[in-house]
Amino acid sequence: MEAGSRRPSATLHASATLGFFCIMVGAGAAWIARGYPYGTLTAMGPGFVPTAVAFLLIALGVAILLFDRSAPGPSQGPEANGAAQPVQVFAGVLRGMFFVLGGIIFFGLSLRSFGLAFSTFVLVIVVSLAQRGARPLPTLLLATAITLGACVVFVLLLGLQIPLFPRF
């Protein structure tokens, strides 16, 4: 793999994007909630709380944009380096995201009509592609093993009502 793939292809500021996101979501939520009866504090309609929360979110978004540029990061999650403030986006990340999320969506689309066995098999292969350098044979073996395991545990042992095979 060439070294170039390790260089971030884009750098975004966490507080800028988060602040912007909060403002957009808040504005959207407030816009939708304008159609809900508002009521008063003591006789609230269904629109009272959503509108209030939406405006608070907008305010927080603005505050994050203005004041939250140097907040320390949390130490949570598998990646625990709180130091790096700019969000770095790597080209390869999009590949990972595409295959993981794409695999899930495909699974959702195919489960009902193609059955658990086929959908699981494809799901495993697709998500495995998220990592570069996945070799064909181990991937196929892994997919077969997981498919078998899932069918036995969920359908045979637990009796979940999911079709195993395609329905034609």
């Binding site: 999650g77 598998p78 790597f90 390869g92 990340v93 990972g96 993981v100």
Partner: peptide, 9 residues
């Protein structure tokens, strides 16, 4: 997603 990204990076 985060782990796959770290692998890439």
């Amino acid at each position: 997603l985060v782990a796959v990204e770290r692998y890439v990076r």
